[in-house]
């Protein structure tokens, strides 16, 4: 049994489906990347997994437990963390308070996890008292990922974590994602920088028009001429 198994997902925002039978599997400890053109349903698929949009058909199993159409505030307690693409921090709250909110469901002492986040993202340690809204885009992304890690999820969903970041920060965030994965957290991410992301992904999905087009290891997808031609810009 895989950590995450989504079968035949159909759904969308209103009457019209955006997802037409999406299949996604993520094994524990691996990094899986979803790539594809705009409008392929990548972000929608992530929202469906986290219960943010209604899944009309299909099932989502997290470690064997059915989480299809459950409320996000319940799903987050089951070991699935989600970082949206935009508006992913609480701007008026300090860095420390953002992380506290990530640990909202924890009743135990989460100080060790807080220290671990500051080790993963050292720039945050010095800025823990600053409102997140005053941070740079890259630092805000660190707060967003840190917040989602506070509950020590088994699987982290990242929706375009490098959108709008400078190349320097993009590399840094990728490197940190690999480091987080090395700590035993599985990652499923949507990424526009397809080549770079497939370079370190254990598994890659190419979506187009709400359907799975290719599924393979990251390296094989990079080597696949059809994928390169159609989706990676030659």
């Amino acid at each position: 049994m895989s950590l995450l198994e989504a079968h035949g997902l159909c759904g969308g925002y209103g009457e019209v489906d955006i997802l037409h039978g999406i299949e996604l599997v993520v094994e524990a400890d691996e990094i899986a990347v979803i790539v594809g053109p705009n409008g392929a349903g990548k972000s929608t698929a992530m929202k469906a997994l986290f219960g943010l949009i209604h899944v009309r058909q299909g099932t989502i199993l997290l470690d064997g437990a059915d989480i299809t159409n459950r409320r996000p505030d319940r799903i987050v307690g089951l070991g699935l963390g989600y970082v949206p693409q935009e508006h992913n921090v609480f701007p008026s709250l300090t860095v420390r308070e953002n992380l506290d909110m990530g640990a909202y469901l924890r009743r135990d002492d989460f100080a060790p996890q807080l220290e671990r986040i500051f080790e993963i993202f050292p720039p945050l340690a010095d800025k823990r008292g600053r409102p997140a809204g005053q941070l740079s885009g890259g630092e805000r992304q660190m707060v967003a990922i840190g917040r989602a890690l506070m509950l020590e999820p088994r699987l982290l969903l990242l929706d375009e974590p490098t959108a709008g970041l400078s190349p320097r920060y993009t590399d840094l965030i990728f490197e940190r994602i690999v480091a987080i994965n090395a700590l035993g957290v599985a990652v499923l991410m949507v990424e526009q920088n397809a080549r770079a992301a497939l370079g370190f992904a254990h598994r890659g999905y190419v979506l187009a028009m709400g359907r799975n087009r290719f599924t393979d290891t990251g390296a094989n997808l990079l080597a696949n001429r059809d994928v390169a031609e159609m989706f990676l810009g030659g």
């Binding site: 949206p84 921090v89 506290d100 509950l151």
Partner: peptide, 23 residues
């Protein structure tokens, strides 16, 4: 904890829910 959750909800209610805050 509730006071901080109130400010969080006022900032961004979708993210508050994604953090497990019972709105």
């Amino acid at each position: 904890r509730i006071g901080k959750a109130m400010r969080a909800l006022s900032d961004n209610s979708a993210l508050a829910q994604a953090s497990g805050i019972d709105t």
